[in-house]
């Protein structure tokens, strides 16, 4: 789940992308400033935060590189877009009172850019087994190994290391080279279960790339397994 959150929620809610500053390289975003508080990003189960204070998170810090304190900010609350990751300049441009402190540079020789902190999908309830139990026929995907998403962060395709068939609530045979694809808001709208705190873990991505000249950044994602209905799988040639 962490890469799913990273690519389809983390990047599209970076306010510099939303405002077009990254247009020529990594692209923009399907969300606009006017969508704040209005856009249904996912189902009511989906709440996602940008949290620079997550204990143990690879994207945790006390202050960003503009000297703004690290914060916990809702990006998607109960399925609705309610926030962006911002800097002092972009917050003002978008009419916000203040930056939420996400400007970071790879090193002293780089410009700070808006970078993800720990963008976390908050846990729901129940175990992984509970999630599986309600699946008559499905696929359990694990560990992204290939990722691709369009320049507005809408059409995505992920390949995974491994998957298992789910049949009548139980894991079945192992599957090789599983892939799934979707459109960001429709995919998150199809989320009908998120496992609880007992399954929730913060994992790190040490090599998130952005900007010109390119910079890599360490970011974190807290997630637990989640269930999505009617997902297109097995895309191949």
């Amino acid at each position: 789940m962490m890469l799913q959150v990273h690519e389809s929620v983390g990047h599209p809610t970076e306010l510099d992308r939303v405002l077009g500053m990254e247009a020529a390289f990594a692209g923009t975003s399907f969300v606009g400033v006017a969508d704040l508080g209005r856009l249904r990003y996912g189902s009511e189960l989906v709440t996602i935060v940008s949290d620079a204070c997550t204990p143990g998170g690879l994207g945790s810090y006390a202050y960003d590189d503009e000297g703004v304190a690290g914060q916990t900010v809702d990006l998607v609350r109960d399925g609705v877009l309610v926030g962006f990751q911002s800097s002092r300049e972009t917050a003002a441009a978008a009419g916000a009172d203040r930056s939420n402190g996400t400007m970071r540079a790879e090193g002293w020789e780089n410009f700070p850019l808006i970078r993800m902190t720990n963008v976390n999908l908050l846990p729901g309830e129940g175990s992984l087994e509970d999630l599986l139990a309600d699946v008559e026929r499905g696929i359990f995907m694990a560990t992204n190994k290939s990722w691709s998403i369009d320049d507005k962060r809408k059409n995505f395709q992920f390949g995974c290391e491994i998957a298992w068939e789910i049949s009548k609530g139980r894991l079945g045979k192992m599957l090789k080279n599983p892939r799934y694809t979707g459109i960001t808001p429709a995919f998150w709208a199809s989320c009908d279960a998120i496992a609880g705190p007992e399954e929730w873990k913060v994992r790190g991505t040490p090599n998130c790339g952005k900007g010109q000249p390119g910079q890599t950044m360490r970011v974190g994602h807290g997630t637990s397994p989640a269930r999505f209905r009617e997902v297109s799988i097995g895309v191949s040639q």
């Binding site: 692209g27 290939s146 990722w147 691709s148 998403i149 369009d150 320049d151 395709q157 390949g159 080279n177 892939r179 895309v235 191949s236 040639q237």
Partner: peptide, 14 residues
């Protein structure tokens, strides 16, 4: 945009 590898031996990309 955002090309990535799906399968190396068959040179399958997305």
């Amino acid at each position: 945009h955002y090309v990535n590898v799906l399968d190396r031996p068959s040179t399958l990309l997305t």
